[in-house]
């Protein structure tokens, strides 16, 4: 699955990022690296951007970009789904 499908309040692990190099570098600098935990905090209305947290950094990402970030979801008890 990808980041745009994650439910608010849910946590997942970044599996892969599939974008051009410029975007990937920016994402990396903001903490989006393979294997890191990512939390979806909220979605804006009308297909607006997503509000996510990685570590202590909070970021807004547009849905189009979020679709390129692939995740492995963790179930509520912490195990990999």
């Amino acid at each position: 699955m990808n980041l745009s499908l994650l439910e608010p309040g849910h946590i997942a692990i970044i599996e892969a990022i599939d974008t051009d190099q410029g975007l990937e570098q920016r994402l990396q600098a903001l903490g989006f690296r393979q294997g890191r935990e990512i939390t979806l905090i909220r979605r804006a209305w009308f297909s607006g951007p997503l509000h996510v947290r990685i570590g202590t950094t909070e970021v807004m990402v547009r849905r189009r970009e979020a679709e390129r970030i692939y995740l492995q979801e963790i179930s509520q008890n912490g195990a990999l789904a």
């Binding site: 975007l23 903001l30 951007p49 970021v59 970009e65």
Partner: peptide, 8 residues
Amino acid sequence: EPLILELP
């Protein structure tokens, strides 16, 4: 630039 904005 991609709109990936920090929310500090």
